[in-house]
Design a protein around this nucleic acid. Sequence first.
DNA 1: AGCGATGTATACTGACCGGTATAGCTACTA
DNA 2: TAGTAGCTATACCGGTCAGTATACATCGCT
Lengths: 192, 192
Amino acid sequence: MSEQPAMTPAAERVLEVVEKLFYDNGIHAVGVDMIAAEAGVTKKTLYDRFGSKDAIVRLYLERRDARWREHVTAVVEQPGRFGPRRRVLLMFDALESWMAAENPRGCAFVNALAELPDPDHPARPAIASEKQWVLDYLRRLVRDTGARNPRKLAASLFMLFEGAAVAASVDVVPGAVAGARDAARQLLDAAL
Amino acid sequence: MSEQPAMTPAAERVLEVVEKLFYDNGIHAVGVDMIAAEAGVTKKTLYDRFGSKDAIVRLYLERRDARWREHVTAVVEQPGRFGPRRRVLLMFDALESWMAAENPRGCAFVNALAELPDPDHPARPAIASEKQWVLDYLRRLVRDTGARNPRKLAASLFMLFEGAAVAASVDVVPGAVAGARDAARQLLDAAL
DNA sequence: AGCGATGTATACTGACCGGTATAGCTACTA
DNA sequence: TAGTAGCTATACCGGTCAGTATACATCGCT
């Protein structure tokens, strides 16, 4: 998380273009020369600011995670004061709008994990953190509904959630996220 | 599917080593020189047999798909003559043993999709075909149970299925596949 | 006997990989 | 006014990328 160190304008431009380049093409497929060219920055500047490509990859994931969390909380914690059951289902609405707007190629963190098999890669904590946050957030929402066995239910919803992202990106199930929300509703109502 | 053209011994060795190399390291991270060295084959032979790396990637996915389908059908269509409801749940047992034995880094097809954004890549049909087969197989199994709205239920089970693979590989949900099977049982029983 | 298929070994191409080096410019600030 | 942070421009490093070229050995088959 935390983008504390007040990026310079050139660094900011790098992180902006990298978001699209990495997500659209995959991480390995994008070289530092391409990043520098696309951001209108020299490689010297790029290495002065970030030190390595791996560090840029880490920041790419951390910033995407931050945007994603903002999106989710903005949808779920609308000022409308929805009840706890409704808030659980709003998670799937948040996923649906996110998929359409930003995620047509599937979860960026799952995709990054596919490309970064090294458990010690500096970007791995960002991947684990995003997944853990989604699971924890679901747990909190589920707990508020007073459902029986909230941890287990949250785990099931988490898997529906991740599966919906896969199904939507692979494009074999029409209306995937909406279907996942309906299934989530069933599981939820059965546990109340 | 279909590995018709009777591979030569050297070609067979290439396809054997490539399965492990591509799955463990990702596709971009494995060069043709590494493949040739690991298979004990010259690059000349490699290109005589396959023509391009992309063709090898396609065969890698097709052969993995074939093994996966054999695994699933062997588990689900055991000679024990289980009933249709039980056969649906056996799909998740098949996934559980597959994850432990062959899939610790998540679904090879989802991972490949992350690395191959080009819709015209020769390996893309293999990816789509695997996902379509799983969905179709679930649809058939669900239909046999006589459940209401079998297409919709199959779609939900498909998402639980894919989500369980993600959850297991990301390792935030203990007992992910077993939890997905329990959720699948709930959805199934609610539709009978 | 001869040919084609299958293979080895080695060397090469041009492009790109992540990362570094050197030199010079501008703007802010101590 | 001198220093420094941030930047551009260009050239370079060794290594690897996918793919090709050349030359030669071994085998089975007709």
